[in-house]
């Protein structure tokens, strides 16, 4: 398993991280070192083993489907870098 520079760019795009071209070789090297080390998991016999979904054996909690919170739009947008009339402001998306 080896991550090439095109894969680094593709993954960075998926992760919405802008990566400068000059940083791509360094990142590819770092990711390969980590993934190479992780590869030792291939030694483990996992056939017939269920993947772990919860460390604690408990039944999923259910609650009444009712409104318990809300009516505080100004609190919700209070930390936004740009807001107007209790809306989050973003760059134009639709022409």
């Amino acid at each position: 398993m080896s991550v090439d520079q095109a894969t680094v760019k593709r993954v960075a795009r998926l992760a919405r991280l802008k990566v400068k071209d000059e940083d791509v070789p360094r990142l590819a090297g770092e990711l390969n070192a980590i993934l190479g080390w992780i590869e030792q998991l291939n030694e483990v016999e996992v056939s017939g083993v269920e993947p772990l979904t919860s460390v604690v054996t408990m039944k999923m909690k259910m609650r009444q489907d009712v409104v318990t919170d809300g009516n505080c739009p100004s609190k919700i947008v209070a930390n936004a870098p740009a807001q107007e009339d209790d809306f989050f402001m973003v760059p134009k998306v639709v022409e």
């Binding site: 998926l14 998991l41 483990v44 996992v46 269920e50 993947p51």
Partner: peptide, 29 residues
């Protein structure tokens, strides 16, 4: 950023079973 990239990679199409599911099986063990 390094960890976000690793995480995005191991969850991405084609790698999910080989990496993420295998790791969760190891966790069971």
């Amino acid at each position: 950023q390094r960890r976000i990239l690793i995480g995005t990679y191991v969850l991405s199409a084609g790698y999910y079973d080989a990496h993420y599911v295998r790791a969760q099986k190891v966790r069971t063990l």
